[in-house]
């Protein structure tokens, strides 16, 4: 038990403060206690290893399900593959993307940036709920 909380309860037990006062004092302590508690809960139980994609659909009255589990290590390796794409190919891809109305310059994408993106994927959760489809993307 927290020392300050114990002191308050002792004061209450000794009759020096009323129950209402004790409640107010404990409530005043809550913000100070909260970060520590959150910190303990937020501590990662272990680094996620997999990216999961779950899709449940109903198509023509038939239920469909997609369940994909991709090791994050595979994504990291894939990011390194992106660094091997020849500049000519990136140029062509940029041109085609531009024609499709997506003005992205792939030559500006650095492997470090992509790796940082993969590193932070474990904090991402996507939930899409529609009457005929449900999509969940998360790391585990």
């Amino acid at each position: 038990m927290n020392d300050q909380r114990k002191d308050i309860l002792d004061l209450l037990a000794e009759g020096k403060i009323t129950a209402t006062e004790a409640e107010q004092l404990i409530a005043a302590l809550e913000p100070a206690l909260a970060p520590a508690a959150v910190g303990l809960d937020a501590r990662p139980k272990g680094r996620p290893k997999y990216l999961r994609v779950l899709v449940d659909t109903v198509e023509n009255g038939e239920p469909g399900r997609v369940n994909v589990r991709v090791p994050l290590q595979l994504l990291r390796a894939g990011v390194r593959l992106a660094a091997l794409i020849p500049p000519q190919a990136l140029g062509r891809a940029n041109t085609e993307l531009g024609k499709s109305g997506i003005p992205v310059d792939l030559t500006q994408l650095r492997p470090e940036q992509l790796e940082a993106l993969v590193e932070h994927l474990d904090e991402m959760t996507v939930d899409i709920d529609q009457p005929d489809a449900k999509v969940r993307v998360f790391c585990e």
Binding site: V66, V68, P71, R76, A77, L81, A83, L84, P86
Partner: peptide
């Protein structure tokens, strides 16, 4: 295509090595 062959082979090996654990389930 002026790509480092050593880097390409090591990356390819990394990709193969990272495959265990992958799972794809499709049901319709």
């Amino acid at each position: 295509y002026r790509v480092s062959a050593v880097q390409a082979l090591s990356t390819g090996w990394r990709v193969v090595g990272a495959l265990p654990g992958a799972r794809f389930d499709l049901e319709q």
